[in-house]
Design a protein around this nucleic acid. Structure first.
Lengths: 188, 188
DNA sequence: CCGCAATGGAACACCACTGTTCCACTACGG
DNA sequence: CCGTAGTGGAACAGTGGTGTTCCATTGCGG
């Protein structure tokens, strides 16, 4: 991916800026570059040294997002077990993405970034849902594309619930998975 | 609410501006006042004549939003029938709010507007869920505050699904209600 | 037809953010 | 100890949105 090697120092600074951008933009998508630089404990000049324009920074954030998302998808092992079980694993892994989830909802046009098309998830996700339809663990009336929307919206619901109410991360994850499990279960 | 009566003409213009603001801001919360004025078929000067500052316009939008939300809540008759049935009615009514749903998600700080506290929903909603817990139509493991988050996130999922996929409004409403019904149903 | 309400356009100062340049400072390896 | 990589601050012009003022135009009721 990276064509030119960077020194350890530069790589660390670059990473700190991207991480700060994710955190700040998640809370306020209209945040100025100055705010992001401050959050990264870096001068605005330095930020511009790594990302000449705002759009360059957003591209860097998108790339980092795709990488984390792909890692999480891999850990979920979508091709193992019954469909609903794999979905449960995916939900748990994505839930741990934290700030990144908020950012994806706050900056929807970030998903339309070219780098996003390199995402691993979509095909495997559809295969997983098809398996769930076949093995009777997922309601056949709910298409894969819809379940994708449901998954993301529930993750968002979980994180906003965490922010607004005084509950533990673990409890919220329990609510999210229980809700999704019920939603996808075939009707009796 | 309105202390000074306005002429029919002024009331109409004011309403057109608020409506245009809802539509434009729903798509792009960072839209300029010029864009909103254009969408309302009104000069920017006229817009400033009705809403001196941007914050005044946002307050007007918030007030309109609360009004529509309260009307929808009223139509749902939360105090009738079993808990899950009332929730289904509420879901259907809110789904028809359309643009306003997108706006509420795009401008979360709009919900923190002072006018929002005059909302009808919260108490009735909690009573409805409590009734559902008692009559066995809603999973007792899911608290009312969480179901509130679930309802809103599913409405958002429905509208974004409608925007991204080629499906009818009616079909999407079916998916949303089926998903919520499954999510809140007590486990077997 | 007059007068007023309502409007739109042009022009203006103001402000925050952006992107850039230049210079000074620090740390670290050879 | 010197040179270089990495950094931060100050200053600058450019840009786009904001809020305001002023004036011309339209339309409608008396």
């Amino acid at each position: 991916m990276v064509t030119i090697e960077e020194s350890g120092s530069r790589a660390r600074t670059r990473q700190a800026i991207v991480q700060a951008a994710i955190e700040v933009l998640a809370r306020n998508p209209a945040a100025s570059l100055g705010e992001i630089a401050t959050a990264a404990h870096v001068g605005r000049t330095t930020l511009h040294r790594y990302f000449a324009e705002r759009s360059d920074l957003l591209a860097g954030v998108a790339a980092e997002g795709v990488a984390r998302l792909n890692q999480a998808t891999g850990r979920a092992r979508l091709d193992e077990g019954r469909g609903a079980e794999a979905l449960h694993r995916l939900c748990t892994e994505y839930f741990d993405l934290g700030d990144l989830l908020s950012l994806i909802f706050a900056e929807p046009q970030l998903v339309s970034d070219p780098a996003w098309s390199t995402q691993v998830c979509d095909d495997d996700f559809h295969a997983m849902v098809a398996r769930g339809h076949a093995d009777g663990s997922i309601d056949p009336a709910l298409p894969a594309t819809w379940l994708e929307s449901v998954l993301w919206s529930q993750l968002y619901a979980g994180w906003s619930y965490l922010a607004e109410h005084d509950v533990s991360r673990h409890e919220v994850l329990g609510l999210v998975t229980r809700t999704i499990a019920g939603a996808v279960a075939p009707r009796s």
